[in-house]
Design a protein around this nucleic acid. Structure first.
Lengths: 224, 224
DNA sequence: TTTTGTTTGTGTCATTTATACACCAATTAT
DNA sequence: ATAATTGGTGTATAAATGACACAAACAAAA
């Protein structure tokens, strides 16, 4: 029995794009055409032949935000019947973490508009996207506890207070300053740049993420 | 642009079926037809329209092993171009844990033969299945450390020694008996049945898994 | 029936890890 | 100069982990 003899679904890749702007935010696009015209949705597109799923995700990501070289991770594949009124559509969901800096919003072909939404004030979502989004958030929070993924949302250099604030924003809980610093510094994943960020109070040491530390850290838990 | 205007891939669901028989074992099927005729492969099949991915996985699982009501979890979706010589095929991989008891092997239509293989002596695998399998094993080991998934591989009732042996076999490391017992019992996920297993030496208490403990335990880590 | 062999079941101490908590230092704004 | 603001540091207590050895209960063999 040949491949073509089986009915085939359409396959899309949706990318939940997170960033930090005061709050933890996700990028959504306003649908221009039916179904769900006028509603907000997670950006995504059809997989093309000869393209890997990750390539599809990266392509979507670049189309929507103009960014490349960001953290991208496959989340889950959704294939329940009836999830797309147009027919049989299976969606591979990815989530991406982009730094608040250097994002250039540009609506794709299918979208009327692209906007960041705080995860605390999401609009009604198209398709089954209201199920997918909490899943992505949960995964992000979970990963934050045992990997160094938090840095992906910050610019190249950052202060420890900024890093802690990022963690607190994502986890939606407050952390003890001294314990946070001890753990982060003890993990050896960041290093001083030598520069300082000056501002209102005392200037703060600037740190950068140690790229060579990624692999070894993946196994450990930073915040058990 | 309508759905049908996009080229569509074939989508299959592959299920890595684990069990414990002395060793940790996976069920593989010997392919009857090309491509890779005569080679061993992870059991799987095409998703049918109107069927969820999980239903496909359960169907495959039942076809191969005759079991229902087992632990099943989506693993990862593989879609690299060229992974199937027949054409464009995207595979959603699941992994299942079935108790060593009550498995009735029955080769499916596409298979010449189904066999359990120890994960320490795997044959050459068809497609990209040699990449998928270690991924499943890693996930299983990882999950074992923070959830109560180990019980899924044991019969209804079991002794603490049997449970410890299961953990040791999967993790491929030895554990301290007293520390193991302290942690398992402290987690409150199992309870005594009151019955004993008699055998060579001193009779052992039989335990059962507390079903109502699943949810609350999912969050905690049993073996950090 | 006594002895031997095999498996179960239990507690403590040392070490490590996590948590709670308060003040001085360095700078800018007034 | 003074006040206001943010950055940076250590210690003591509690909890979790890891290492470790022997008596109890039964079956098999003598």
């Amino acid at each position: 029995m040949a491949l073509e003899d089986y009915p085939r679904p359409s396959v899309t890749v949706d990318v939940i794009i997170f960033t930090l702007h005061d709050d933890l935010q996700v990028l959504l696009i306003k649908r221009k055409y039916p179904p769900f015209a006028g509603m907000w949705a997670i950006p995504g597109g059809f997989v093309q032949e000869g393209e890997s799923l990750e390539e599809t995700a990266l392509r979507e990501l670049e189309e929507e935000t103009g960014v490349r070289d960001v953290y991208l991770e496959q989340l889950y594949t959704f294939g329940n019947p009836g999830r797309d009124p147009r027919g049989w559509v299976i969606t591979v969901a990815y989530f991406a973490l982009v730094p608040c800096t250097a994002v250039d919003l540009q609506a794709g072909d299918d979208a009327a508009e692209a906007r960041w939404f705080s995860i605390h004030s999401l609009p009604l979502l198209a398709f089954d996207h209201a199920d997918i989004l909490p899943y992505a958030l949960q995964r992000l929070r979970y990963k934050l506890e045992y990997s160094a993924v938090g840095f992906e949302l910050l610019p190249e250099t950052f202060t420890l207070t900024e890093l802690q604030t990022a963690y607190e924003t994502i986890l939606d809980e407050t952390l003890d300053k001294r314990n946070f610093r001890r753990k982060i510094l003890g993990a050896g994943v960041i290093e001083r740049t030598g520069a300082y960020r000056t501002g209102e109070g005392r200037p703060a040491q600037l740190y950068r993420f140690r790229d060579d530390a990624v692999a070894e850290v993946k196994a450990r838990r930073l915040f058990p």
